[in-house]
Design a protein around this nucleic acid. Structure first.
Lengths: 223, 223
DNA sequence: TCACAAAGTAACCGTTTAGTTACTGGCTTG
DNA sequence: CAAGCCAGTAACTAAACGGTTACTTTGTGA
């Protein structure tokens, strides 16, 4: 096959329709997805390299080919997870909203993201178990800060100017409050549901907790 | 040595001063303490049976002698940790306090317990990673409920009667709020400190967060 | 078209791991 | 005081594990 034909096929079919058997990007991506599940379900010590390869529908050799070793693969998983939430956070626009509405939106976004990405919370838990060993190593991750502190800061300033919020409110505290209420509820759902005999993930309970987070956050910052 | 002498020595010296080399209770306890550290630091998949034996200053054989296998040892550790917090909770008496003071005390107690027992939080994290597999297995643990929900319920009722608190407040929600704010701050301190460039465990920050928990809790339940 | 690089496979390897066996030494009790 | 049980040790084992080697297949550009 010559160059021209190749180019035509690429342009016409695009990545998805290309019938090739060998596809480095797809293989890499499926290893990363499989590793995300495996690390989130079992932690770093419980995750099995063979299990990741099998879940990815590929060979263990490929895993070492693309990622080096188990720890570097874990780091890639962690980085991807952080990039995911930071990217999603960027798309949230609160500048047109009234301060209270803005805070409520920010809280609901965080809550819903946690609900829909329990694997991210699990990876956070694993990373903290190891005292942020990989996070601290990664310059890429350290440069990837949240946009939410800035957005919150703006909302709080606008609320303070209007006399709605107390003047001494710290944006980081507000963010930690929202994150704490969401994180704990989702990540500790299993022990909590068992001990209190109430399924925390029932739709009505989930919706009630969302309202609760918003209520608590606003009640704590109002004058 | 005859019986009388033995009895005398027991009565005189007590357990601590007894110079015996063989001491089943001490060995069992030191294995349990070592296992608590090992499981809290490494999770269940990362914990090493050999490391536990070494930390306990004993032999791996003893570990299997007293606890059966790694999983049963983990369960014993988890049970002891829960018994620890439940016992401590029992000693908190709030019935003489005004409703607001009582809630504040309960929140501060929980916060300080979490601060002083990070290994308990770590075990909770591990247990939730495994979807409460061992907690659900253990009838002993399922019968060991917190006294705090009852105490909170009383405080809230008294506060409601005085017109201080809203009538629709659910004690479980209040408890979850307090626990969430404490748990997240302590257990996620490493990623949070790294990302926000602020040492959350600095004394001033710790004290500020304690005040914050009390403030948030009360603000969210007041009329 | 052919040589070379990269993608992919499978069998293999040395180490670590949970768990066991075979044994020794000390405590208690009839 | 002897018999037997229980605490304790050390060396061992089989399986699981992370990682590698040796090799084949596929795509590409000179």
């Amino acid at each position: 096959m010559d160059k021209m034909q190749e180019d035509v096929r690429r342009r016409a079919g695009g990545r998805a329709e290309r019938p090739t058997q060998r596809d480095p990007e797809r293989t890499r991506a499926s290893i990363l997805a499989a590793a995300t599940k495996e690390f989130a379900e079992n932690g770093i010590g419980g995750a099995r390299v063979d299990a990741i390869a099998e879940r990815a529908g590929t060979n263990k050799r490929m895993l070492y080919h693309y990622f080096g070793d188990k720890e570097q693969l874990y780091l890639a998983v962690l980085e991807e997870a952080y990039v995911g939430i930071r990217t999603a956070e960027k798309s949230v626009n609160l500048s047109d909203l009234e301060p209270e509405q803005g805070i409520a939106e920010l809280a609901m976004f965080t809550w819903r993201y946690f609900l829909e990405h329990p694997e991210f919370l699990s990876l956070l838990g694993t990373e903290n178990l190891h005292r942020a060993r990989w996070l601290r190593q990664s310059t890429r991750l350290k440069e990837l800060h949240s946009h939410f502190i800035g957005k919150l800061s703006d909302l709080l300033d606008r609320g303070k100017a209007k006399g709605l919020f107390r003047a001494d409110i710290d944006p980081l505290n507000v963010y930690l409050t929202i994150a704490a209420l969401g994180y704990f509820y989702v990540s500790n759902q299993y022990t909590l549901s068992t001990i209190f005999g109430r399924d925390l993930m029932e739709e009505a309970n989930v919706e009630a907790w969302e309202r609760h987070i918003v209520h608590v956050t606003l009640a704590s910052i109002r004058r």
